[in-house]
Design a protein around this nucleic acid. Structure first.
Lengths: 306, 306
DNA sequence: CTCCTTTATGAATATCGCTCATAGTAATCG
DNA sequence: CGATTACTATGAGCGATATTCATAAAGGAG
């Protein structure tokens, strides 16, 4: 009643605004432009005749009215989601399974929190990580051994649905006293006489090799390990160079444990979730993609949603 | 999350559907066409892949999924309304007053329940009925002695905002053994030798006189009283004819206390709420109009919303 | 069976939310 | 202090889609 201006979309915008701290970042989270949100909020403020938050200063400050609406959103949005899931359950009577195949080792950092959120929302869905190492996670989809594969590159023509997640910068990691630290950035040729420290995966699954070194015909020595912390220790002790996503090593860099340099004019890694495109598009799969995107965007520094 | 198909509008539709028992009546309540609701619900059902209610049979039956959504609506819509009102209060810091001037005596029947609902929602607004008899309630608006006037006709050119409420049939009321009961319907000429029993208001405020008798130059004897029940007693004891809204005497007719006949080819009364069109359109005024329309539509038989 | 009320459906319309392009505004830095 | 960068505001135009209109179909009541 009393003029039905308020819509679900407004509530979503407000929570995104709180989570991200700015209109433009909130827009990325919602897959909308900054302009859309600006218009949207202006309409609300015009309608109520008072400001919902103050734009100047990051993170922005909510006004009492804004806080009241946030409180509403925090109460309403979960109820809405919960009702939607109940209906979906009624519809396809079912539980189901979400077995996740991962190609990139660092992914566990963000996958765990996302899985926790998912478990809360879809308790009846059997949730698992397909264990062991798999050179081709997408193959697991077709073999019905996984329901979702997280990959960093997708072949055209694979008969799967692709859900882009996010992209990020991959940086070279050096010991603080490494001679290459003198350079502002590293070029492919700098890797010639170095040892490349990485996870135990085939060459072509490393973005650095696939995107830069292989095209340049450079094949540095490789040394592998399974744990991120072990990998960083090798780097710190001068055994070689590693290349990892910036977000994966952000905390180590801040503490000065090792040093980072951009590679070429910026090496960009991307991540995608892939699923079989079945006749019954199980709603919890799409939901999990949303959860990943949202939770990564707020917790991983410097990533850009795709 | 999980496809944001569900909107506030859908929840409103569902509650209206429950309150009215049919798509077409729900449409009237929401100021939408039956077609709109049909499309809207079909979209929902298509999306979820299951029916929300069964159309055959009145009143319609909700499915489990429909009931789940109704439960959601019952939880969410009040929260939404409450938040809106909180914001409005923050905006105009204020309480305010709603003094209602009434021209038509029968209006008290539905005004009281509507006022009760209003009091619950806007506890800080001072709510009153302007007491005493007022030949021109609209004048009270301009004199700042009332905030809303309920009238059955509005002069063009009055500088007030007009909020149409509903329309209804006015019927002639006769003693069960009255000679005119023999007729299927009453014509203006039938009133010539009769006594017209009514509330103590000027001729021109009675729809019967204004719309039919005065144009025909007929001025029957008048007898007045203040209470509806007293008026009906006079009719039942053969002292004359009355003309009242069908909804006002519905229960008496069902019990056979008196008889009713249509007048001419249907005498239609209409009711409007009028307010001053101020620079600050106080939101609780519009809300009260909504409350009136909704509560009357579900509680008064045979009325049509305007 | 017929009348009357209700619902369904497809096409046309109108609304309105979003994007695009661009300007304005702070804060940061050499 | 001008330059740069990041964020927000704004108006025009587009596109999606909710709604209406016109009409058919389907029950229920008498």
């Amino acid at each position: 009643m009393a003029q039905p201006i308020l819509e679900v979309r407004h509530l979503r915008t407000l929570t995104a605004l709180r989570d991200t701290g700015s209109l433009s970042r909130a827009g990325m989270l919602l897959n909308l432009t900054q302009s859309a949100l600006s218009h949207q909020l202006k309409a609300l403020e015009d309608h109520f005749g008072l400001p919902l938050f103050t734009r100047k200063s990051t993170p922005l400050q909510f006004s009492p009215a804004g806080l009241r609406l946030l409180q509403l959103a925090d109460s309403v949005l979960p109820q809405l989601a919960s009702a939607q899931r109940d209906i979906n359950r009624l519809a396809q009577g079912s539980s189901g399974s979400l077995r996740i195949a991962v190609e990139c080792h660092t992914c566990f950092d963000w996958l765990m929190p996302a899985m926790d959120q998912f478990r809360e929302r879809w308790p009846e869905v059997e949730l698992d990580i397909v264990s062991g190492f798999h050179p081709d996670p997408v193959a697991l989809l077709h073999q019905q051994r996984a329901d979702m594969a997280i990959v960093s590159a997708v072949d055209e023509g694979e008969a799967v649905a692709i859900h882009p997640l996010f992209e990020f910068e991959i940086v070279a990691l050096l010991a603080n006293n490494h001679r290459l630290c003198a350079q502002e950035r590293l070029q492919p040729s700098d890797f010639v006489d170095e040892t490349l420290i990485s996870y135990a995966v085939p060459d072509e699954m490393l973005d650095l090799v696939r995107q830069l070194l292989a095209p340049a015909g450079i094949r540095p020595a490789r040394r592998t390990t399974e744990l991120t912390i072990a990998l960083l220790q090798l780097v710190a002790s001068g055994r070689g160079i590693a290349a990892l996503p910036l977000w994966a090593v952000h905390s180590y860099l801040q503490r000065g444990y090792i040093s980072a340099r951009p590679i070429a004019d910026g090496l960009t890694g991307r991540l995608y979730a892939t699923t079989l495109e079945g006749p019954t598009p199980r709603p919890y799969l799409a939901d999990f993609v949303d959860i990943i995107r949202a939770s990564c965007f707020v917790s991983l520094p410097d990533i850009r949603l795709l």
